[in-house]
Design a protein around this nucleic acid. Structure first.
Length: 583
RNA sequence: CGGGCUGUGGCGCAGUUUGGUAGCGCACCUGCUUUGGGAGCAGGGGGUCCUCGGUUCAAAUCCGAGCAGCCCGACCA
């Protein structure tokens, strides 16, 4: 394509609204424009990248035996009510009514539609297994869209669904998709890690996320420095810690004198509503404090007990409770529902209807500090086993931190941030059961189809690629995702130069390469800067200076390397350079 | 949904404290010169100053309400 007839609105300055590199650069490179927060148009250059990602995904899905379909973006509420997710999805789903007051949503995902498609047609075990996928725009009313394509309200996703007879079939299908995903991200030139994940609202038994490591990532990931353990911190568990306080706690249990020596005391702690305030006021280590986190789970009051220096992991808490809706209690709710005041709530003598769940680390605490359920007072010398009678369970509720022991090998965990570009789930029979998608097995018995679901955020992959591949001059596309492979810059206005450029352009195009010709009437600096900003892997400069010697100048975007090539062998040389660039 | 910041030409911003009829850089158009890393000179076009209401002789500026965008948090396949 010739830039003189292209729509490439590059920006010299960084748009004020964009925070992270991929957002800034995609705007500056004229790839995307936003219509509203989290809603984007993909301009010609940007859409080419999207299509490159789609094509790689498509090829690998096809290779894995999956079949491409296209499902409706507009879905009826009925199927969501059947699966129970009409309520569960909450405000994340964009809903509307047609002229007849019939309820619809814009598909945030397609498990229900898949179940509907197959339930009427799949009758026998002989019809299974198979795998359907689509590449389509998904719509989710994100609470807070941000970071450009990274978290948008409308985004392109590849979603695949496997349908199997049993768990064994699902395991195979899951592994097949896992392998396909590894190939997809490798081909995209992305450095990804696979981590164990929480399956969240999707339900199901097993789940892995494919993560691109990047500082701007919204997910925290725990990696073991010694073994291959890797998990999203939402799910990551810490191994057992052999601590001295743990040992002494059991000793204390056997020593009634120790308990007596440490009777509960109420201390005046005016305005100390945070752990930090308390540390300053009574000089106790946060490790000796019990944080009491008040939540409302499906409209019932619950509290989580966490050591003062730990963070509550809401996913673990929610999973333990089996709750659908879990939210922090609002301060206004404290007096009535928790019999206390925000900032001073504690587990000792709470109203009886409140469920108490404690992190396993609470078990080994003694002479701890916690809220007194009375404004401006805390309790000291609290021993959980003696003083908190209604603890429903001790379980791991805390978020793992760097340095925590690995659950697999005991080595130290480290925390890195990552961008979730793919997520695979073993759904099991959650949707097939509720929506009656069944088949008859060899014995003529009706069985629910066993499903898996597999997503790749296509637009997010493009953004993640920019996060991982850019420098101070702009984007540095990995060759497989580059919108064009080569850009030719004729400099000056001599007809020899433009003729040579035109010839090379034709030659490269005939050779099947994707080529841009910057034939705009712009100064050299403008052309150089734009070429580097949009990140084309190979830049060919043609100017009278080198043309006199029958040479073209090459710059490799990634390395910055520059050298000359002979005009006569240019196109063969360029092809060779591109092949090398793939490796 | 809570906290903070911001809305002035396509982009980046000043002007708001102290009210007086809108400005700078970039981009854009015309001409001349220039032409290998975001050109120079001259001339020119473009703005409901987010919206609505109020105060005032007079509002970008003061007051009230609303809307939008961004950041932090909450939340979120």
């Amino acid at each position: 394509m010739k830039l003189s007839n292209y729509y490439l609105p590059t920006l010299r300055e960084v748009p004020a609204d964009a925070e992270i590199p991929s957002h800034q650069l995609m705007l500056r490179a004229g790839m995307i424009r936003s219509l509203s927060a989290g809603i984007y148009s993909y301009l010609p250059l940007g859409y080419r990248v999207i299509r490159k990602v789609e094509q790689i995904v498509r090829e690998e899905m096809d290779r894995s035996g999956a079949l491409e379909v296209l499902m409706p973006a507009m879905q009826i509420a009925d199927i969501w009510k059947e699966s129970g997710r009409w309520e569960e999805f909450g405000p994340l789903m964009v809903r509307f009514k047609d002229r007849n007051e019939r309820e619809y949503c814009l598909g945030p995902t397609h498990e229900e539609v898949i179940a509907d498609i197959v339930r009427d047609e799949v009758r026998s075990y002989k019809d299974l297994p198979f795998n359907l996928y689509q590449i389509q725009t998904k719509v989710r009313d994100e609470i807070r869209p941000r970071f450009g394509l990274m978290r948008a309200k409308e985004f392109i996703m590849k979603d695949a669904y496997t349908l199997d007879r049993d768990e064994e079939g699902l395991d195979k299908a899951y592994q097949n998709m896992y392998d396909a995903y590894v190939r997809v991200f490798e081909r995209c030139g992305l450095d990804t890690r696979v981590v164990e994940a929480d399956s969240g609202a999707m339900g199901g038994s097993g789940s892995h996320e494919f993560m691109v490591l990047a500082d701007s990532g919204e997910d925290d990931l725990a990696f073991c420095t010694d073994c291959d353990y890797a998990a999203n911190v939402e799910r990551a568990e810490a191994g057992l810690e052999i601590s001295s306080s743990g040992a002494s706690a059991s000793a204390a249990d056997n020593d009634p004198a120790a308990d007596e020596a440490a009777a509960i005391e109420k201390v005046h702690t005016p305005d100390a509503t945070t752990i930090e305030d308390l540390v300053n006021m009574i000089e106790v280590s946060p490790k000796k404090m019990i944080k009491t986190m008040a939540y409302v789970a499906d409209d019932k009051p619950v509290v989580a007990l966490i050591r003062g220096d730990d963070q509550l992991n809401e996913v673990k808490f929610r999973n333990h409770l089996g709750a659908i809706e879990l939210r922090p209690a609002h301060p206004d709710e404290f007096p009535e529902r928790f019999g206390s005041v925000a900032g001073f709530i504690g587990p000792v003598d709470l109203p009886e209807d409140i469920k108490i769940v404690a992190d396993s680390r609470i078990q080994e605490l003694e002479q701890a500090v916690t809220g007194a359920n009375q404004k401006d007072y805390h309790l000291v010398n609290v021993n959980p086993h003696r003083d908190i009678k209604e603890i429903e369970a001790f379980t791991e509720l805390r978020t793992v931190q760097a340095g925590d022991p690995c659950p697999k090998c005991g080595g130290a965990l480290e925390i890195k941030s990552g961008i979730e570009v793919g997520h695979i789930f073993k759904l099991g029979t959650k949707y097939s059961s509720s929506m009656e998608a069944t088949y008859l097995d060899e014995n003529g018995r009706e069985q629910p189809i066993v499903m898996g679901s597999y997503g790749i955020g296509v637009t997010r992959v493009a953004a993640a690629a920019v996060e991982q591949h850019h420098d101070e001059r702009g984007i540095v596309w990995p060759l497989p995702l580059a919108p064009y492979q080569v850009i030719i810059l004729p400099l000056g206005n001599s007809s020899e130069v433009s003729q040579a450029a035109e010839e090379l352009y034709q030659e490269l195009q005939d050779a099947g390469l994707e080529v841009l010709l910057d034939d705009r009437d712009e100064r050299a600096g403008v052309k150089f800067n734009d070429a580097e900003l949009i990140g084309i892997p190979l830049r060919i400069t043609i100017g009278s200076r080198s043309l006199e010697k029958e040479e073209f100048e090459v710059q490799i975007r990634r390395s910055g390397e520059e050298f000359n090539i002979d005009r006569s062998t240019a196109s063969a040389e360029i092809k060779k350079l591109l092949e090398e660039e793939i490796e």
